[in-house]
Nucleic acid binder design. Structure first.
Lengths: 290, 290
DNA sequence: ACAGCGTTGTAATAAATTTGACATTATTCT
DNA sequence: AGAATAATGTCAAATTTATTACAACGCTGT
């Protein structure tokens, strides 16, 4: 399908010469605040341009639309496309694969999720969360559920290098109450809970909250019930062309948190990472070369 | 005049908790294509969000507008203001954060990684890999290392729903040789191995290869030594503005594989997923509503 | 100057959108 | 488990909005 790629703005400018006096007046009024003015009621647009309503109706028909509503519809489509576009300039991500291929469809969805997720985050909130997570004055607990424990563990594995006193709890394990024994005022909990919200996770959050712990929640756009207990809540978009959800946007947030954490405690982190390297050397766990 | 500088989008997000189910559904629909969808007729918006028209009317009143037209009016004002604003907003992902903020820098890197990663994949190779992974005629083994076992487990958790005979092996566990006892000709191994390539993983791959297993490798752009044994190799870009690497592109591939797998075995998957739901219902592990 | 034609506005009509009243359904609390 | 309450949808009335018909105006050329 060959996209016209001709915006209404373009079309109006093209026709400008063929338009009559009142119509030109109107055209300029539309272009003045494009596309906002065209999206209001016909009456308002006419008054704005100091022309009569039928002039508006006639002009949109001259431009090839059946009526004003159809004209507005296309304006809105344009707006939608514009919002999507900055990133979607890639027709296909994988060369040689049709745009309907899983890889392309899935990647589109993930990029979209990322954009929406990031768009909803206030940088101050994010910074505050990172400061809390990086604060070594309080123990850090990381909690995940059935699927999300993978994200929790990913965070844990890195947090463990960056700072001491980090614990990973799986809410699906029935041993989780044990961990709460030592929890006190001001301890920090990072909790992951996405769709198919888990009862165990909620109970755990309630108990942690009752003990005065601060809760940072990573959830989806519909928000886990834990969010009412959370001090800070990040909701990622997780929709994907699949029977299951995508964790990609969540992972991006987690990795950003890790990156921010290490910047906060850089001296410590460097030191700890070096000591870790030494220990790895002694265990011969990794290959020295290649 | 003190401008509130609070966009409707902000206000909706702020109120999100106080909104009811149908209203939240609607709110998400508005934010999905913001502000385009809110500028159409109330009727269309309601249909889009699968709620009734009065729900829309009620919500905009809850947000403090006299009626839908007034709501639209403010949306248009917002749009005008945005268009007038000399700073082109959309070069940062998180509004309000400077382009040097971790979130923006990290996201840029991840999108770039995704682009590079996808650009190097041949769709035929990908399809072949998915066919192998989905083929229930052979057992499937999924192997991960120190950090990558989180990706391995993510794949495992989903693969387990989609097909039988899936096993997750952590190469860092010293029990991994046990798993190789039963491995035979044609078994399929999915192996994750990224920088700081692990000796255990390589040994495991060698033994699996010696037994005639097929190996599908997920590695980074520098390629794990396992790649010489692999039938299929995917290398993701993993560079990030951080002391550690980003797994986001790898996760995207994994999720795409999951999506493709389920399409291949859809009948089976559906059946298995339903049975799983039943079992979940019986365990009361998840919340039924909200 | 005035006939003719194209342009524009006024007013009435038709169509649509929005809002309000009420019944039904879901949820919460006891 | 059942009553009370809140949420949601259906339907109809009211309002707004778009369109059409027609009259007035102004320009152009003879």
């Amino acid at each position: 399908m060959a996209e016209p790629t001709l915006t209404i703005s373009d079309r109006i400018q093209q026709e400008l010469d063929r338009l009559t006096r009142a119509e030109r007046q109107l055209a300029h009024s539309i272009l003045e605040n494009y596309p906002a003015s065209g999206l209001g009621p016909l009456t308002a647009l006419a008054k704005d341009a100091n022309v009569s309503t039928p002039t508006v109706a006639r002009m949109v028909q001259k431009l090839g639309f059946k009526g004003y509503p159809e004209f507005q519809n296309e304006l809105r489509e344009e707006l939608k496309a514009k919002a999507k576009n900055p990133i979607a300039k890639h027709d296909t991500w994988t060369e040689g694969a049709p745009s309907g291929h899983v890889l392309n469809r899935f990647t589109d969805a993930v990029i979209d999720n990322i954009r929406h997720t990031l768009g909803q985050i206030e940088p101050e909130t994010f910074d505050r969360a990172c400061a809390l997570i990086a604060d070594t004055a309080h123990p850090l607990y990381i909690v995940g559920g059935r699927i999300t424990h993978t994200m929790a563990e990913y965070l844990f594995l890195h947090a463990q290098i960056i700072r001491p006193r980090v614990t990973h709890i799986q809410s699906t394990s029935n041993a989780w109450p044990h961990y709460l024994l030592d929890v006190g005022e001001g301890d920090v909990f990072v909790i992951f809970d996405v769709r198919r919200y888990e009862n165990n996770t909620l109970k755990l959050a309630e108990m942690a909250h009752a003990r005065g712990a601060k809760i940072i929640l990573f959830t989806d756009q519909w928000r886990s019930p834990v969010h009412s207990l959370a001090d800070i809540c990040f909701s990622s978009r997780i929709v994907a062309p699949s029977a299951w959800d995508s964790a990609a946007a969540t992972l991006l947030l987690v990795e950003s948190v890790i990156s921010a954490m290490q910047d906060i405690n850089w001296e410590d982190t460097k030191d700890r990472a070096e000591r870790l390297e030494d220990m790895f050397d002694q265990t011969r766990l990794f290959r020295k070369f290649t």
